[in-house]
């Protein structure tokens, strides 16, 4: 099948490329855009490591073709914060040892960012339910749960 021209806004920048129709959004981001923070843990939509925001929605970029994101606004982990300017969610993960190897971490940070936007004052059950689509093998989720609670509380304190 012939390549297809796509234009996707990634972290606020327009990105144009000619891609095979079967190229996943994850591979487009990693290889065409050089944004390697989006990780592939299963490539079948279960682990959540490849989660990015597409027009604000948390989406598994391994299950979306780049051509399906034509015209969309995509935010990857690189668009959430920077090493010397962590977002509140990233800072909370650091403060509460919410990461170890860091492979699942970008997917968690993106998922939590979207989750807290939609659930600014979540209960523990809502946190557990909201993040049950992201797998972590290192932390036993203890630091992650603490980080999400803290990020929510911090946001409440700021806006409250």
């Amino acid at each position: 099948m012939a390549d297809v021209e796509v234009e996707i806004r990634v972290n606020g920048q327009p990105r144009r490329a000619s891609v095979e129709p079967r190229r996943t959004l994850a591979d487009f981001l990693r290889e065409q855009c050089g944004l390697t923070g989006t990780h592939l843990g299963c490539e079948h939509g279960v682990c959540g490591a490849c989660t990015v925001l597409v027009d604000g929605d948390a989406v598994r970029s391994c299950l979306v073709f780049a051509v399906q994101a034509e015209g969309a606004e995509v935010t990857t982990i690189e668009g959430i914060g920077a090493p010397d300017e962590l977002s509140p969610v990233q800072a909370a993960f650091r403060d509460h040892h919410g990461l170890q190897c860091g492979f699942c971490t970008p997917g968690f940070v993106v998922s939590v960012t979207a989750f807290l936007r939609d659930h600014p004052n979540p209960t523990d059950d809502e946190i557990r339910d909201g993040l049950s689509g992201n797998l972590c093998r290192c932390t036993g989720y203890q630091g992650i749960l603490a980080a999400v609670r803290a990020a929510a509380a911090g946001a409440q304190a700021t806006t409250g």
Binding site: L40, E78, F93, R94, G102
Partner: peptide, 21 residues
């Protein structure tokens, strides 16, 4: 003491370097 990890800033922001990168 519970000092912050030096690994965290890069891993939290997508700037880690894994083999597939």
């Amino acid at each position: 003491t519970r000092v912050h990890r030096v690994e965290d800033a890069r891993l939290l922001t997508g700037y880690g370097t894994f083999v597939d990168d």
